[in-house]
């Protein structure tokens, strides 16, 4: 039986590998959307077997640690957080794959103009996911708190895009299928931001036991 510190090290390694994979997939899906980079979108669409495998490995490692080592204090918080983060990362990967599929469909249907705010939203989410993964790698609770704050920006951009979509519907000659796919993509991006906020909340909990879930966002001074 490996020591608790070795098991925790392995869990950390798995979680960071998974977070790097997921970040790459989100970025590739967004490249597909913003740069019409179909090769990137297709790579994401190809499947998320590696993510599924990592998801099972992380869960199995957590189960091993809980069953054999009964961790307490910061070790317990890290394992609890890892279970939640793992589930959230797996959902983010699924959403990235969904975006990639729609991006490919859209390109073949009818290339359409992307509204500027969609570019802003994608940039916000790129920054969010980078900060989320950095806060996870460094156990940085303050950076994680900023990620929660950034989610509010994405929520505002999402509302603007929904207004844009409603306006598009009233314009004669629009392609309803393409518009629905764009709305689906926008929803997925917004959901990824929500999940990044969830991961950030788990990072804060692991760092110092603070439970910020269901609490109003307070901006960090830094």
């Amino acid at each position: 039986m490996a020591s608790l510190s070795n098991e925790l090290l392995n869990l950390r390694r798995l979680l960071l590998t998974m977070s790097a994979e997921v970040e790459q997939r989100v970025n590739q899906a967004l490249d597909g959307l913003l740069k019409h980079d179909l090769r990137s979108a297709e790579a994401v669409r190809e499947g998320d077997d590696p993510i599924d495998q990592l998801d099972m490995d992380v869960e199995s490692e957590c189960a091993t640690i809980l069953a054999l080592h009964q961790p307490v204090a910061s070790d317990l918080r890290y394992v609890m957080a890892a279970l939640r983060i793992n589930a959230d990362l797996e959902k983010i990967a699924d959403l990235a794959r969904g975006i990639a599929k729609k991006v490919i469909k859209l390109e073949y249907l009818k290339p359409m103009e992307r509204p500027p705010v969609l570019l802003d939203m994608a940039s916000s989410v790129r920054a969010m996911i980078a900060d989320t993964m950095r806060s996870l790698a460094n156990g940085d609770a303050n950076l994680a708190l900023n990620v929660r704050g950034a989610d509010k920006t994405v929520d505002r951009q999402y509302k603007e895009l929904m207004t844009w979509a409603a306006q598009q519907m009233s314009i004669p000659g629009h392609d309803p299928k393409a518009l629905l796919d764009v709305i689906g993509i926008v929803r997925s991006i917004e959901r990824i931001a929500d999940l990044c906020a969830n991961v950030a909340e788990s990072v804060i909990f692991a760092a110092d036991g603070t439970v910020v879930r269901h609490q109003p966002v307070v901006r960090s001074a830094s």
Partner: peptide
């Protein structure tokens, strides 16, 4: 006063 983390609910 300095750290916003201190303003939110804490476990136990």
């Amino acid at each position: 006063a300095l750290n916003p983390l201190a303003n939110v609910a804490r476990l136990g």
